[in-house]
């Protein structure tokens, strides 16, 4: 079973991180899912693949009624991001899934219908969750050609999808990055290979440098917080990406 941890709380406005599944088969990549609630409204961020659904559901339901989740944000179209959509819709068939317009006719292969998907235009959009206005921030080509991150200006949290992801070796399962230099070694090969465009990388670094961020939450690996957020953005800006080796 996964662990659910509160990473931000201000009254009825909360961010939960659903992380680390010791029971996960070793052939599945480990993923982080995030739940943002504001009053009676909730959005599940990158809800995960159908294989990890049982672990995510059981952890989430200890803190929140899964039937109340009425929004889902999918950073992109990959199966580890959104193939569990049909399972979440079992509990609320009216869920709205926010995803790049590029993928809104592909992802229905995982579930959902004509009314499920809300297209996010290339320039991004605001998503209202309760009284909070979250921002879908463009991150195209990092790594998917239609890709968004989710920024909460009040909580100062940026959900950064695959950017910042690290494939951690067994045993290294801290929720937060504790030693940046050691941690980033597990992120380097991933970023070089998965992130395909130098230009997209530079655009993203410049865009997010202007945001006030306390926590940068990737979909795999530990969360960057405090000074490590800027450290990561600088590291990424200088990393050569879109290469097969090295």
């Amino acid at each position: 079973m996964k662990t659910i941890r509160v990473i931000y709380e201000d009254g009825a406005h909360k961010w939960f991180a659903i992380v680390r599944d010791p029971g996960r088969p070793d052939y599945l990549v480990d993923t982080n899912e995030f739940l943002v609630i504001s009053g009676d409204d909730a959005i599940l961020v990158d809800p995960g693949g159908s294989e990890v659904f049982p672990a995510v559901f059981s952890a989430l339901s200890t803190q929140y009624d899964p039937r109340k989740i009425n929004k889902v944000f999918a950073s992109h179209q990959d199966p580890d991001i959104i193939s569990s959509l049909s399972m979440w819709m079992e509990f609320n068939p009216n869920i709205k899934c926010y995803i790049s317009w590029l993928w809104s006719s592909f992802v229905p292969h995982f579930g959902g219908n004509r009314d499920t998907f809300v297209d996010i235009p290339d320039g991004g959009t605001d998503i209202l969750v309760g009284s909070q206005r979250l921002q879908a921030v463009p991150a195209h080509y990092l790594h998917s050609s239609g890709n968004f991150h989710l920024y909460d200006p009040k909580a100062k949290i940026l959900f950064s999808g695959d950017v910042g992801a690290a494939l951690m070796p067994p045993g290294e399962d801290n929720l937060f990055v504790e030693n940046f230099d050691r941690h980033i070694r597990h992120a380097e090969a991933f970023h070089r290979r998965w992130m395909g465009s130098e230009r997209a990388k530079r655009d993203w670094c410049s865009r997010v440098s202007q945001l006030d961020i306390d926590m940068l939450c990737p979909q795999h690996g530990a969360i960057y917080r405090g000074a490590d957020v800027k450290r990561f953005i600088d590291w990424f800006a200088h990393l050569e990406v879109g290469v097969l080796k090295g």
Binding site: M1, S50, F53, P54, S58, S61, T62, E90
Partner: peptide, 24 residues
């Protein structure tokens, strides 16, 4: 397949989660 996944979720759940899945 969906039922199989739900049963796996049920096996990991306690309390409210288990009740919701049982009902479904």
């Amino acid at each position: 397949r969906a039922i199989k996944v739900l049963e796996r979720a049920r096996a990991q759940c306690e309390g409210v989660g288990k009740e919701i899945i049982d009902d479904l």
